[in-house]
């Protein structure tokens, strides 16, 4: 895969992921990961201090599906949507099958009242398998590093 092809493939994965979350297609979310994929949300503060505490942690697609099921059927939160902006992606090859990608993101949270809040900003630290299921790239690992140590009210929908 040429550098250009690689960038297109990674950008496409990042964009499809952001649109799935922002369009409330959470059932598609686990499919962006390999079966034993890892998803973690951490704060930059804890990461810099070498402290492992996550806000969310899934160690498999099954755990991601459990999170979606809980959000749909058990957890109670006000209607809200996200709008992601993802940019400045750096790509490094690990081997012929995998890359690391580091991107910036911002996420606006829109409440039903109309309140729009800059809810989260940070980095995605991704390890991507280039030819996953269906020949499409998938995350082996996605670590969401929040710039802030504080979350407004709650963080229900994944970032």
């Amino acid at each position: 895969m040429s550098d250009i092809e690689l960038r297109i493939a990674v950008d496409n994965l990042l964009a499809r992921y952001a649109h799935a979350i922002d369009d409330d297609r959470l059932e598609e979310w686990p499919g962006f990961f390999v079966e034993q994929g890892i998803y973690r949300i951490v704060t930059a503060e804890n990461l810099e201090r070498g402290l492992p505490l996550p806000l969310m942690l899934a160690e498999s697609r099954a755990m991601l599906r459990d999170r979606v099921n809980a959000l749909r059927r058990a957890n109670v939160y006000e209607a809200q949507r996200y709008r992601h902006g993802v940019s400045s992606t750096l790509i490094d090859r690990i081997d012929s099958a995998r890359v690391r990608a580091t991107s910036n993101f911002i996420c606006v949270r829109i409440m039903q009242s109309g309140e729009s809040l800059l809810f989260a900003s940070g980095r995605y630290l991704d390890r991507i398998l280039l030819e996953g299921e269906g020949g499409l790239p998938q995350f082996e690992e996605r670590v969401v590093v929040l710039d802030s140590r504080a979350i407004d009210t709650l963080l229900a929908i994944p970032l």
Partner: peptide, 11 residues
Amino acid sequence: KVLGTYSQLLP
């Protein structure tokens, strides 16, 4: 031993 810390801003 501390595993980490974060804050939740409550309305």
